[in-house]
Design a protein around this nucleic acid. Structure first.
Lengths: 67, 67
DNA sequence: TAAAAATGTCAAAGTTGTTTTACTTTTTAT
DNA sequence: ATAAAAAGTAAAACAACTTTGACATTTTTA
């Protein structure tokens, strides 16, 4: 699933590591998600959205056709 | 994490099994999520929100204090 | 231009989410 | 009151997400 994490993170001048620490995960987790290696858990998705000041459905782009 | 699945599902007169099939998972998965045994994946959260015609952040109630 | 910071990547181990099968209990409808 | 449908539950196996530790590459800054 696509996401806007990298864009929003840079807009707030966070490094991957800073965002990771703010969300309570490791740098590798943020890196993997930004590079579409896998999707975060729902819990982490909410934390990231909260930190980046957007809603989950704004941070992650999900398309019905996947249904 | 709390959610409104049971309420919205009943409002649309779906059984757990019907909702499960619509979302492409098993009945047990829906049952476990409704009863707060665990949270769904982000992907499944989006599917359920889509089927139940609400946003992810309306279907699942996440509180900042968990951060 | 060299050092420092940030990012990319990988494998193994650990944790969490999902399926399958099966059985029990509760709710709905006849 | 009974049968059928729906919901609850549990263990084992499997799949997906996260951590840890390590090292390579790219970008930034002094």
């Amino acid at each position: 699933m696509k996401n806007n994490i990298k864009t929003l993170r840079k807009a707030q001048k966070f490094s991957q590591d800073e965002l990771a620490q703010a969300a309570g995960v490791t740098r590798q987790t943020i890196n993997a998600i930004e590079n579409d290696k896998y999707d975060p858990s729902l819990e982490l998705a909410f934390k990231l959205a909260s930190i980046l000041l957007v809603r989950v459905d704004e941070l992650f782009l999900w398309h019905k056709e996947n249904l």
